[in-house]
Simulated assay, not measured.
Amino acid sequence: MSNTDHAIKNVVLVHGAFADGSGWRNVYDNLTAQGYRVSIVQNPLTSLEDDVAATTRVLERQDGPTILVGHSWGGTVITEAGVHPNVAGLVYVSALVPDAGETTAQQYEGFAATPNFVIDVGDDGFGFLNPEKFKIGFAADTSDSDAAFLRDSQVPINMSVFGTAVKNAAWRDKPTWAVIATEDQSFDQAMLQHMAARAGATVTNVSASHALYVTKADVVSDVIATAAQEALAGVR
Results as ranks from 00 to 15, higher is better:
170 A>G: 04
97 V>C: 15
92 Y>Q: 09
115 P>E: 13
170 A>Y: 02
151 R>P: 03
76 T>F: 01
142 T>F: 05
162 F>R: 10
148 A>D: 15
83 V>W: 08
70 G>A: 02
94 S>N: 07
123 D>E: 13
103 T>R: 09
111 F>A: 12
119 I>D: 13
112 A>P: 06
140 A>L: 08
86 N>V: 06
107 Q>G: 14
179 V>E: 08
96 L>N: 15
127 G>R: 04
116 N>C: 10
130 N>K: 00
82 G>R: 00
142 T>D: 10
94 S>W: 00
126 F>Y: 11
143 S>W: 01
150 L>T: 10
99 D>M: 14
149 F>P: 07
148 A>V: 08
119 I>K: 05
129 L>S: 08
168 N>R: 15
147 A>H: 07
79 T>H: 08
93 V>M: 00
137 G>C: 02
168 N>Q: 15
141 D>A: 00
97 V>E: 14
128 F>G: 10
169 A>I: 03
133 K>A: 14
184 D>N: 13
100 A>N: 11
105 A>R: 14
180 I>F: 01
155 V>W: 10
186 S>C: 06
160 S>C: 09
184 D>A: 02
151 R>C: 02
172 R>C: 08
105 A>E: 14
127 G>S: 06
162 F>N: 09
117 F>C: 10
152 D>L: 03
148 A>K: 13
172 R>D: 13
118 V>S: 09
129 L>Q: 15
170 A>P: 01
77 V>T: 05
189 Q>D: 14
153 S>D: 11
151 R>M: 05
142 T>L: 12
80 E>T: 05
163 G>C: 05
103 T>I: 04
130 N>M: 03
69 V>R: 00
167 K>F: 10
187 F>D: 13
114 T>E: 15
188 D>A: 04
186 S>W: 00
81 A>Q: 10
125 G>K: 06
76 T>V: 13
166 V>W: 05
88 A>W: 06
71 H>D: 09
166 V>M: 06
90 L>M: 04
137 G>H: 05
72 S>R: 08
75 G>S: 01
173 D>W: 03
86 N>L: 07
177 W>A: 04
156 P>A: 07
70 G>T: 02
